[in-house]
Amino acid sequence: MQLVVARIGRAHGIKGEVTVEVRTDEPELRLGPGAVLTTDPASVGPLTIETGRVHSGRLLLRFEGVRDRTGAEALRNTLLIADVDPDERPEDEDEYYDHQLIDLDVVTVDGEEIGRITEISHLPSQDLFVVERPDGSEVYVPFVEEIVTAIDLAEQRAVIDPPPGLIDDGAASDEAAGGPGASSGDAGDEA
Results as ranks from 00 to 15, higher is better:
9 G>R: 04
13 G>T: 11
14 I>N: 13
17 E>S: 08
19 T>W: 09
20 V>N: 03
20 V>Q: 06
22 V>S: 02
23 R>E: 15
24 T>D: 09
25 D>G: 15
25 D>W: 10
30 R>N: 12
31 L>V: 08
32 G>F: 07
33 P>W: 14
34 G>Y: 06
36 V>K: 14
36 V>H: 03
39 T>Q: 06
39 T>R: 05
40 D>G: 07
42 A>W: 00
45 G>N: 06
49 I>H: 05
54 V>Y: 10
54 V>G: 03
56 S>F: 09
57 G>Q: 06
59 L>I: 10
59 L>K: 05
65 G>L: 15
65 G>C: 10
66 V>S: 05
66 V>P: 03
72 A>P: 07
74 A>G: 08
76 R>P: 02
78 T>C: 08
81 I>H: 01
89 R>L: 12
90 P>T: 07
90 P>E: 09
91 E>C: 03
91 E>Q: 11
98 D>Y: 06
99 H>G: 01
105 D>E: 15
106 V>A: 07
109 V>Q: 08
111 G>V: 04
118 T>P: 00
122 H>W: 10
122 H>C: 04
123 L>T: 10
127 D>N: 13
129 F>S: 01
130 V>L: 09
131 V>R: 03
131 V>P: 00
132 E>I: 02
137 S>W: 02
139 V>E: 05
140 Y>M: 12
144 V>N: 07
147 I>K: 05
151 I>Y: 03
153 L>D: 11
156 Q>V: 00
159 V>L: 12
162 P>H: 01
165 G>Q: 08
165 G>N: 11
167 I>C: 04
167 I>P: 03
170 G>S: 06
170 G>L: 07
172 A>H: 01
175 E>K: 14
180 P>T: 10
186 D>A: 15
